[in-house]
Simulated scan of single mutants.
Amino acid sequence: MGSLRGLRQAAGSYFRLYERGASSSLRLSRNSDLKRINGYCAKPQESPKAPPYTYSHRVPLHKPTHWERKILVWSGRFKKEDEIPETVSFEMLDAAKNKIRVKVSYAMIALTVAGCIWMVIEGKKAVKRNESLTKLNLEKKARLREAAALKAKTE
């Protein structure tokens, strides 16, 4: 058991030394062929056009639709639709949409509270008129029975 552990440690240290030596003498260049560097500072060859896989640090832009322009104005990002540039960033558009979502949710909360208050007021008026759902349902069923009886007599 002890000899296996020693063998593993020796193999591990050997590979670490090998990797350290290999990484200093061999480097992977941009066009992925191996290049030998002998301790000198070597400049990588630059290609005339940038490779397609590199990421430019520019923010991708989007041409807003008519509806998105309205959202940008409603969110308060711009005063008028004329002030909106030809292209805007996706982040700006997302921020405006999120602001509108929050405003719509606040409006829905306010409408729900107003509807609840209105139902309470209507319920209190119904109590004053001595109306209840049970009474209204019984009257409706009585009318339906009378209508069914009249229909049965006429047939």
Rank of each mutant, 00 (worst) to 15 (best):
A50H: 07
E131G: 00
I37S: 10
K97F: 03
R129G: 04
A110H: 11
G76R: 04
D82R: 12
K128D: 06
A126Q: 15
T87I: 12
E83N: 03
F90M: 09
V102Q: 06
K49Q: 13
A42V: 11
Y106I: 09
A142T: 14
R36G: 02
S89F: 02
K35M: 11
N130C: 14
W67R: 12
F90C: 10
S132Y: 03
L133N: 13
S25L: 13
R30I: 02
E122F: 12
K128S: 15
R101Q: 07
S29L: 04
L93K: 00
W74Q: 15
C116E: 06
A22P: 01
A42F: 05
K141A: 15
R129W: 05
K97Y: 02
E91F: 02
M119H: 08
H57C: 09
I84T: 07
K99E: 09
T65G: 00
E81G: 10
S105C: 11
A126L: 15
G76N: 04
N38Q: 12
S56Y: 04
F78L: 03
L93E: 02
F90D: 07
P44M: 11
A95R: 04
S56W: 00
C116F: 06
M108Y: 10
P64N: 06
W118I: 01
K135S: 13
K141G: 09
A96I: 02
S24Y: 15
S56L: 07
K43P: 00
L133T: 02
M119W: 05
C116V: 06
C41F: 15
Y106N: 14
K43Q: 10
Y40I: 02
A149C: 08
T112N: 03
S47V: 04
A22Y: 11
F90T: 12
D94A: 13
E122A: 13
I37C: 04
S24A: 12
S29D: 12
A22H: 10
S89N: 08
A110I: 04
S105E: 10
L136Q: 11
A110R: 14
R36Q: 10
F90I: 11
A110G: 06
K125P: 01
T54Q: 09
R27D: 07
I109H: 06
R145H: 14
P64K: 04
V88Q: 01
A95D: 11
A142Q: 05
A96S: 04
K135C: 05
E83T: 05
G39N: 08
P44S: 10
K49M: 07
V127K: 15
V104E: 07
K70A: 11
V102G: 00
R129I: 02
S47T: 10
N98H: 02
E68F: 05
P60C: 03
I71Q: 03
K128W: 03
G76V: 04
K97T: 01
P85M: 09
A50V: 14
L28I: 11
L136I: 08
F90K: 09
T54I: 14
S29I: 04
K49W: 03
K79C: 05
V59G: 10
S132Q: 01
S32G: 02
A110N: 09
E146P: 00
R145A: 08
S47C: 08
R77Y: 04
